[in-house]
Computed example of a mutant assay.
Amino acid sequence: MAEHSVVFSFFLIFSGAAILASIALYTRQPLLVAYVVLGAALGPWGIGAVSDTNLLADIAHVGIIFLLFLLGLDMQPAHLLHMLRKATLVAIASSVAFMGIGYGAGIVFGFSQIESLVMGAALMFSSTIIGIKLLPTTVLHHRHTGELVVGLLLLQDVVAILVLLLLNSGGESSSTDISAGMNFARSMLALPLLALFAWGFVRWVLLPLLQRFDRFHEYIFLAAIGWCLGLAEGAVYVGLSAEMGAFIAGVALATSPISQYIATSLKPLRDFFLILFFFSVGASFNLTLIDDILLPALALTAAVLALKPVIFRYLLQGISESADTGWEIGFRLGQISEFSLLIAYLAFASGLIGTEASHVIQATAILSFLLSTYVVIFRYPSPIAVSDKLRRD
Rank of each mutant, 00 (worst) to 15 (best):
T325H: 12
A195W: 07
D177Q: 15
Q113R: 12
R379V: 13
H142Y: 09
A246G: 05
A40K: 00
F278W: 01
F11Q: 12
W204G: 12
I64W: 08
G354F: 08
Q317C: 10
L370I: 13
G131W: 02
A78Y: 13
I353W: 03
R186M: 13
L89A: 14
T176D: 06
Y103C: 07
S187V: 04
Y219P: 00
L196G: 09
L346C: 06
T373E: 03
G326H: 06
I178N: 07
A365M: 09
V159F: 07
V36T: 10
N54K: 14
L276Y: 00
D214G: 09
R85L: 12
V376L: 02
I329R: 13
H217Q: 15
T301K: 08
F312G: 06
V236D: 12
G39P: 02
E328V: 15
V50M: 03
I178S: 09
G318I: 13
L140H: 12
F221C: 07
E243H: 12
R215Q: 12
Q362G: 08
V36R: 03
W227N: 02
A34G: 09
T255F: 04
A18E: 08
E321M: 15
A254K: 00
G120K: 05
A357I: 11
E338Y: 03
W327T: 14
I290G: 10
L209N: 11
L70M: 15
L155W: 00
T325E: 13
A60I: 10
T373N: 06
Y374S: 10
S320V: 12
A323P: 12
G171C: 03
G16Q: 02
L25H: 13
F216K: 08
I13M: 11
S382M: 09
K308I: 06
E233V: 14
F98D: 00
G318C: 13
P30D: 02
I161K: 00
A249N: 01
K308V: 12
A190P: 00
E321I: 12
F312H: 10
L12T: 03
A57H: 06
L300G: 01
D214L: 11
L206R: 00
A180E: 01
F312T: 11
R392K: 14
G171L: 04
V7R: 13
L307S: 05
A198S: 05
A160N: 03
I132G: 01
G351H: 11
A224H: 02
W227R: 03
S372Y: 02
A17Y: 01
L371V: 13
D324L: 15
A252V: 04
A232R: 04
L274K: 02
G334H: 05
F278N: 00
G170L: 07
F201W: 06
V36I: 15
F201Q: 04
L240G: 05
I92L: 15
A160I: 05
L294S: 09
V36G: 01
M83K: 10
P268K: 03
I258K: 00
S94V: 11
